[in-house]
Simulated scan of single mutants.
Amino acid sequence: MAEFTIIVEKLPTRCTDDDFIDYGRRFMSFFDACPTAFGGLTRLIVGNLRFGESDIHNVLKTCQNLQYLRLFNCDSGNLTVLQLEHPQLNVLNIANCRFESIKLNCLPKLAQLMVEGWLSFQDPLTFGYVPSLEAVRLAGVGLKRHKLVKLSKILGKISVRDLRLNFKSEKIWVQPELPQKLASVFYKLRLVNLFRVPEGCDLTWTIFILEAAPFLKELRMTVWDHWCNMEKDEERRESLYSSNKSIEWESSAEDFKHHNLSVLTIFCFQSEDFLVAFIKRIMEVAVNLEDVFLYNMLACDTCKDIRRPCKFPRTKRQRCSLKKRINEGNSFAKFHFVTSVTADHVPISEYP
């Protein structure tokens, strides 16, 4: 249960390439001097350094008991491929690392994968032998120049139960696909969590997930422009952020019905037309929907002063009016209005 932390001298934003190289060399020098100690680790968190070409391979080879690995703000030089194999690794978390792509060659016990940010939007991940993989979290910022990602390509031949996508309040970077393209990837899917979907965009594109995942039980969504974590006007222009964050998509099956979705949860709900229209569409499609949970805005002390007025229905009259706007059909789903987040329905964090 020991925890060991090395603090670098500079903030990562002020580090030069030489600093990252120096930190990497110093870490590996210490690692090579204490192989027995590192060999007993079950958790390893490493950040803000540059590895040599074979360093990560050597670390994993030495840390045979490793169950959790987190790499953040790391690389192995320009446009390198991170190749991983380990007999015991259960959780892998890679955040803001500058690898051209990541290849999971052989990780027989890997159950959870979290990847935040990638250089290549077309081939960021390659899955080898990962028979135990249950949950995948992907987070990225879509810029103007980025082409949309096809989940059938990025996830390959794997099939997961829990899929979580974080759009960081920017352009939707997922390309809707026909059900047959995703049939093998989504047939085990039970929970989909879409985090920081940009406010105001048409949400009907998400129906393609329901069409491809017939056994999906719950759809969670956080619709939130988290302003204190977003680039402002000048930075947006310079970094080529997209002003059009939505995507257009029409279902190929007008009479499509989903028979297993039972729970729809929306965090940061506001009585806006685009959200009302989306819920109506879900209630039309999900014929056995049981519960609709609508949560108020998430608390953030940093950006609360620049947030527009809250449109969450607080009074009984407002809630009755909203339910009439939404439920014009024969759905028997129960509405639950929640002013604060509970332990049962916590949205995914940025990355723990």
Rank of each mutant, 00 (worst) to 15 (best):
I7L: 08
L107G: 10
L298C: 05
L203K: 04
L44V: 10
S76V: 00
F215I: 05
F20R: 09
S169K: 00
F27Q: 03
D305V: 11
L71D: 06
P313A: 04
P124V: 06
R236F: 02
V263S: 10
N296M: 07
L275W: 00
Y129R: 12
G77L: 03
H258D: 08
N244D: 12
E9K: 06
C268M: 02
N58R: 10
W173Y: 15
P35V: 14
G200P: 11
W227K: 12
Q180A: 12
S243W: 10
L82K: 07
N260W: 01
V287D: 06
E100W: 11
L148R: 09
N48P: 00
E235Q: 13
A277E: 13
A277D: 13
L113E: 03
K257V: 15
N296P: 08
K171T: 01
E250Q: 11
D305K: 13
Q122P: 00
V185E: 02
V276K: 09
I94D: 01
I247A: 08
H345Q: 15
R317G: 00
G47T: 03
S184G: 08
P179N: 04
L49E: 00
I102N: 02
L155P: 10
R317S: 14
F30Q: 11
G117Q: 08
G117E: 10
S152W: 01
S331P: 01
F121L: 02
D17E: 14
I207T: 15
F51H: 04
C228M: 02
A213P: 02
D255Y: 09
E231T: 07
V46T: 11
K181E: 15
L79Y: 15
E250W: 00
V285I: 15
A33P: 05
D19C: 03
L264F: 15
Q318T: 03
L69M: 12
